[in-house]
Design a protein around this nucleic acid. Structure first.
Lengths: 252, 252
DNA sequence: AAGTGGTCTAGACCACGCG
DNA sequence: GCGTGGTCTAGACCACTTC
């Protein structure tokens, strides 16, 4: 029957709109529980699937988050600020600090899922590094967890002929990290290029970053170049878009 | 009944996985039509809503796109490359070229939904420009449509006390655009800061950019600073994430 | 134990687009 | 006109969280 009143909008959209308005009006704050499926069925006299669809809209917009057996809750945002240039200034890694330390400041940062291995470079990596397909590279993977929430994972690829037998092939690279070691090897990076994309995560990515429905990922591919113009590292990063603001400063 | 075989995965996920695998294997190329709801119902012996859910997964991942009355199709990607630094180099607007011309190259670019008006700056803009709340600013809005597809819309805010009576308050700002005019007024930008976020679009944003389900937007807020350190412009841009790759080049 | 969201069924009517 | 996806109903069972 779908007794239409005066509107040409789907019921579930009207319900979603009403909830969204309530959220934006501050009626429900971050972390608050929204009316559940049963509440909406009663309040709007609709079927379960229709109430579900309305709540699904808010989740796909990234405004709300469902917790099984508990309810649907308004999401909170407090992103990290990632400064694209300052964090890679030579003084950073030259002084023995991790370039990640500038992002997190006074919050608890855990690095896990560390994996260091040698492998054959795939096409994308070969292209970025400017090497012939099939060349061996060292791959360094890790995930960053901030205050218990995974925010980023990254894999860094370095040509084997440069880094073989160096600490870069070990789990712990020492003070200043990979870039300080590359400098000692005579291949210190002097130039960087970062490529940024955004898209919805694969199921695997959503899992590794504990992403709620409706959260895109930001994909950053950074290539580091040495003095002689050679690409010495390519770093593929996947960020939780709800956890990050990227910042780039530059002169005209 | 949901006769479970050996898996603990929902049916709709298994169907979605199978379709995704077929796409990645190249069985369905960009623009190809995927099996529809009726096909999936027959092939997997599931109810309509379950087949729908499976197709919904692919749409939310940005892999597929539904066209009413026609079917569900594999999406194609060929993003523009937006170079963050080069495009804002002084030679660009100093030479009378539009900074947008570097992005599009040989494709057909249409600018529409142009709106130029004076208004009271809201809190966010005041904060970025470093002015007191309620100050008057000129707001310049426009949308960019590339080969018939909207890819970006932006609103630029400039303090009224700087731009009053200049061509910046007109629809057409002349060769080199706003930045060339600012330079003539003695407030040429010498430094820029870009802040980048990503999130799912609001219904309004999805509409203005003709976004398919499962497409995030990229939000760029650029602030331009003059020689004296004063912020002379803040530009809020909203990009279709499927149409753009951002690129930033910088030295260590 | 009660309530929540997650999955699923088997129907229905509609608006749209394509040929 | 016919098939498509879009919306909607009225049920059902499950796993999970919270009390």
């Amino acid at each position: 029957m779908t007794s239409q009143g005066a509107t040409r909008q789907p019921k579930y959209q009207r319900i979603a709109d009403a909830l969204r308005k309530s959220i934006q009006a501050g009626e429900y704050g971050p972390g608050d529980r929204l009316p559940g499926e049963n509440d909406l069925m009663a309040a709007y006299e609709v079927a379960r699937m229709t109430a579900r669809q309305a709540l699904g809209v808010l989740q796909n917009e990234g405004l709300a988050e469902a917790r099984k057996g508990a309810g649907v809750f308004v999401r909170a945002f407090r992103p990290l600020r990632r400064r694209g240039l300052q964090r890679l200034a030579q003084e950073q890694w030259g002084s023995g600090r991790s370039i990640w330390s500038t992002d997190s400041e006074d919050r608890e940062l855990v690095v896990d899922q560390i994996d260091v291995r040698e492998e054959e470079a795939d096409d994308r990596v070969c292209d970025a590094l400017g090497i012939t397909p099939g060349t061996q590279v060292w791959a360094r993977s890790r995930r960053f967890v901030l205050d218990g929430k995974p925010v980023l994972f990254a894999t860094s690829y370095l040509p084997s002929d440069i880094v073989a037998d160096s600490p870069i092939t070990q789990r712990e690279t020492g003070p200043g990290g990979t870039y300080a070691r590359l400098a000692e090897l005579g291949h210190g990076p002097v130039h960087f290029r970062e490529e940024i994309r955004s898209r919805m995560p694969s199921a695997d990515e959503a899992d590794r970053l504990s992403l709620a429905t409706g959260t895109p990922v930001i994909r950053i591919v950074r290539t580091a170049f040495a003095e002689d113009g050679r690409a010495v590292e390519v770093n593929e990063m996947t960020l939780d878009s709800a956890s990050y603001v990227l910042e780039y400063d530059f002169d005209a």
